[in-house]
Design a protein around this nucleic acid. Structure first.
Lengths: 346, 346
DNA sequence: TTGAAAGCGCTAACAC
DNA sequence: GTGTTAGCGCTTTCAA
């Protein structure tokens, strides 16, 4: 009586095991295992025979058994947070897809989990202790986020998308996008178009990311010997903040262009322009950040700095493979350069 | 010599096992297992003692071992596709988060995989044969998609987000949102505002979803005895198609309002209005579908039909639990009603 | 109510 | 090159 009908009188048919393949091919189980994991060890004709048996039965190694034996799950954990409604911030969608794709090529799958809002660490802890994932991708590296330190202390392998701002010497691998370079790019683009009074609308000063992006703007301005005083504003990341800030700047500093730390803020600028009967791109130029769908479909289009998320994902997975290797190979950090998606608003 | 230092002279410290807990609590391994899975079987004081040992060691059952033994992974697979750039379609982000949340409460994690573009089924097959997931959530139920039939033939448990349009008697559980009701809601909203000539911009006729939504519009119009002839257009789901279609309709049928099958099309309408110096919401009303971020942040806001994705996720997981139960409980299908997010454009 | 034994399917280590 | 042995950590019988 075969395994199938012994275990399941009904559905579903139990998938074939190593033993089934071995029997069919007339070899031992170990040889089948080798055929799958170390084909080089087999003689060509044996390998072929085993291969045929595998194909014939539609055999695929049972993950649970393999995981148990190898102490690896080939799963990487990614914590996702709720979409922020009312903003244009939707990086994650693109990043997640890129990550899944890059992971697949490296033999990993992505396991999603949601943060217990009260205890962000709980989800990590659970997966870690139950050895459900081999590593994590950490994306929310805002200031004071304890995840990196916490994971580090537990020796949990992880790669961060985002620099360790508060600790440049952090020992974990990370990948990030050069926000300053992006805003420099955006500002220089406007300067090349003849703009001289280019305003900045960014986030509050306690945001490292925001200050980094702002630095790109001021750097580009200074490189042309242009003043920046009175041309900058720091606000919350909402459409209405962008609207209010741009109205004030327009009144007090008469800029001919805006560079914003986010598409959300840029949408606020567009709103102010519309309210004043000004046309974006003709009367006043506007550049956003993140190349969200919003930037892509809004009337006449919003020029925006685009993060190379596909490349980020590839680098993240590369770093992960290094970290998971024996011995672990930690390359310090990777900084990628964004590009500029030029549209009608500039 | 304990397990830890035997296996790992170095890092990372091996997580505690059932045996470790059993030793500490002075009971057998089986008793610890029961404490975790069938606490009722234990005497109160034994349970307490085991619980303390578990807490003290930070024990969490090894998933791979449990999966191997129980033939279940407590993972559900979700295939994700690339974000469509240049459109406002970003349902998935919200749905995925809701699904992760709902799954967590049911004891499941979500495993993401990407479709091999060439062979969409390959990803499913791989995960299925390696028993990596217990079930799938299928979201792309477009016409002629072979996934449902294929999975059904393999007796693979799955729940669809989307009706089996081409086979109403399909035996699998599904959850969907009533698009007709949504467009009826949108149209009635406009009718209540006094509009009588309300145009429809939807997708090509071979889209069941598009025709369903369109039916809601015509139903609402007919309910008030209003004509629909000459007021409808069927195009591709792009901004420029929406722009062109609305320009034609405006010229030929003089509608005072538009209901669109997607926010993407609605953005096209807004573009036409802007080009003609018309103000959305004042001169011409516009309603989109999906309540995307685009609808939320665009100047003055775009009224849009909002799918209750959180509820969809809950129902999907509920259906999944039924399907995975012993015996499987298949409830036929669940149809949820969308709501209308009213903003400045109407 | 608790414990002992068996085995899920696989691979690492070693023998042949 | 191939086969044998052992055991990853857990849960499901079954016995005490």
């Amino acid at each position: 009586m075969d395994t199938v009908s012994k275990v399941f009188g009904r559905i579903p048919p139990a998938p074939p095991t190593l033993a089934d393949v071995a029997e069919l091919a007339g070899v031992s189980r170990q040889t089948v295992s080798n055929a799958v994991n170390n084909p080089d060890l087999l003689r060509a004709d044996t390998l072929l025979r085993v291969q045929q048996a595998i194909d014939q039965l539609g055999y695929s190694p049972n993950r649970a058994a393999r995981n148990l034996r190898t102490r690896a799950s080939h799963l990487i954990g990614l914590r996702i947070q709720p979409v922020q409604e009312g903003t244009a911030n939707a990086l994650m969608d693109r990043f997640v897809h890129s990550l899944v794709e890059a992971s697949r090529e490296a033999g990993y799958h992505v396991l999603l989990f949601s943060g217990d809002p009260i205890d962000a660490l709980a989800g990590y802890d659970d997966l870690l202790r139950s050895t459900a994932v081999d590593a994590f991708i950490v994306t929310d590296t805002y200031l004071g986020n304890p995840q990196a330190a916490w994971l580090g202390a537990r020796r949990a392998p992880f790669v961060a998308f985002g620099r360790p701002w508060d600790n440049p010497d952090a020992p974990h691998p990370w990948v990030d996008v050069d926000g300053a370079a992006g805003c420099d790019l955006a500002t220089s683009h406007l300067l090349d178009k003849g703009h001289e009074r280019i305003a900045w609308i960014g986030w509050r000063k306690d945001s490292f990311i925001g200050e980094d992006r702002r630095a790109g703007w001021s750097r580009a301005m200074r490189a042309r010997g242009l003043p920046t005083t009175g041309l900058a504003s720091r606000v919350e990341d909402t459409v209405s903040s962008g609207r209010d800030a741009s109205a004030v700047l327009l009144d007090e500093a008469q800029p001919s262009a805006f560079v914003c730390a986010s598409d959300t803020l840029a949408m606020g600028v567009l709103r102010t322009l519309a309210e004043r009967g000004l046309t974006a791109g003709r009367d006043v130029a506007v550049v956003g950040f993140d190349d969200s769908q919003v930037a892509q479909v809004v009337a006449s289009g919003l020029t925006s700095v685009r993060q190379p998320l596909e490349d980020v994902a590839v680098e993240v997975v590369k770093a992960l493979e290094g970290r998971l290797g024996h011995p672990p190979a930690i390359h310090p950090g990777v900084l990628l350069s964004p590009t500029l998606a030029v549209r009608g608003s500039s």
